[in-house]
Design a protein around this nucleic acid. Structure first.
Lengths: 196, 196
DNA sequence: CCACCAAACGGACCACAGTCCGTTTCTATT
DNA sequence: AATAGAAACGGACTGTGGTCCGTTTGGTGG
């Protein structure tokens, strides 16, 4: 009589149909976003495209934000991968200051590309795969490497804040700043904070 | 035959009933927010309370965000007043660095109090009485007074960004930072940026 | 005082996020 | 293979933001 051995896998394990539907929904959402843009994608449409009822969508993803966060997850995971094991200067191997600057540039580019999706994911993004906490953690790590004194956690937040989507949008769309201008200004900010 | 003389007042001037309704709607919204909190206030409820049709609400304020921005406007105008002509150190009279720090503290307090309303006003807040652009302008002015070199506009944005409502909320609600901790950390950030 | 009409009104109507609950499907157990 | 019960399903239903358009009203020129 083999005992179930609840090792790492303590989740009650998803039923086969549930897993299938989750995949189908993510594929459908991804496709619809690609075709019509994030803002035009409705939950009914996603459900219909995946061939499931609407209730199923909400059972799996809680809310529209939750679904968007799940879609976003793929690209965020890739981003994390490039930090953890990608080529320098974003990945390991470059000196901390170079990594820090490169990280910011990458984040700016990514936030410009996925802006609408990130906004649509809202606070659900923070809850799910913890994009927020991962980037903050990495930031704090780099600041520590650089020997920065003071409230590292807050300084990390403060350096990340101007890279947030709404602020980037304000700068680019309304004040007409270019991406290059943005990155060089951010570099300046980083140097001030680090050397301060 | 007197000519209409389109002086400063080039707006076509609001009709009497329209003005009355706009006031009634703002009063109703204010009251409902006070009674039930921002998130529980529906446009139907505001219309009913003001004794007008729903169409009228949207004619006046465009959207829910627009209405919230209009309600918010009062307190933002007061805030601006305290900067332009209030007592130091927020108002004029104190040395720039003191004013800058005091400004941040005031903004943090205000954003904590009006958080939900500010979020509900969303991007409409930026459009309307330009809370965003006013604070940014003031910030730039103070940085210039302090002789800061570099991209003043961006540095102003960067110092303002960690004071934004969602980031403040993240810090306070999730990371459990106290308001005092927040203000002293922000002070540190300011000193780094200014002296950098 | 009247007639005119642009502006404002109001509430039925629509679209979409999110809920509810009776029905179906999976899987563990025998 | 049969069965039971938990989990998942689906789609009708609800609440709310936002639109539309036929009706009313307030200002103006005669």
């Amino acid at each position: 009589m083999p005992i179930p051995l609840p090792l790492v896998d303590d989740e009650p394990q998803e039923r086969r149909d549930a897993a299938r539907n989750r995949d189908a929904l993510l594929v459908a959402a991804d496709a619809l976003i690609g075709e019509h843009g994030v803002d035009a994608v409705t939950m009914d449409a996603v459900a219909a495209r995946a061939g499931v009822g609407k209730g199923t969508v909400f059972r799996r993803f809680e809310s529209r934000e939750g679904l968007m966060a799940a879609v976003l997850d793929r690209s965020e995971t890739a981003f994390q991968g490039s930090i953890l094991s990608g080529p320098p200067p974003v990945g390991p191997g470059a000196p901390p200051m170079e990594r820090l600057l490169a990280f910011g540039h990458a984040r700016i580019r990514l936030n410009r590309v996925h802006g609408a999706l990130i906004v649509a994911a809202g606070r659900a993004a923070a809850r799910s795969y913890a994009a927020v906490s991962f980037t903050a953690m990495h930031m704090r790590y780099l600041l520590r490497e650089l020997g920065v004194q003071g409230d590292i956690a807050f300084l990390a937040t403060a350096l990340l804040a101007p890279l947030e989507v709404p602020i980037l949008e304000q700068q680019v769309e309304i004040e007409g700043v270019s991406i290059e201008g943005l990155t060089t200004s951010w570099d300046d900010l980083v140097r001030r904070v680090v050397s301060g």
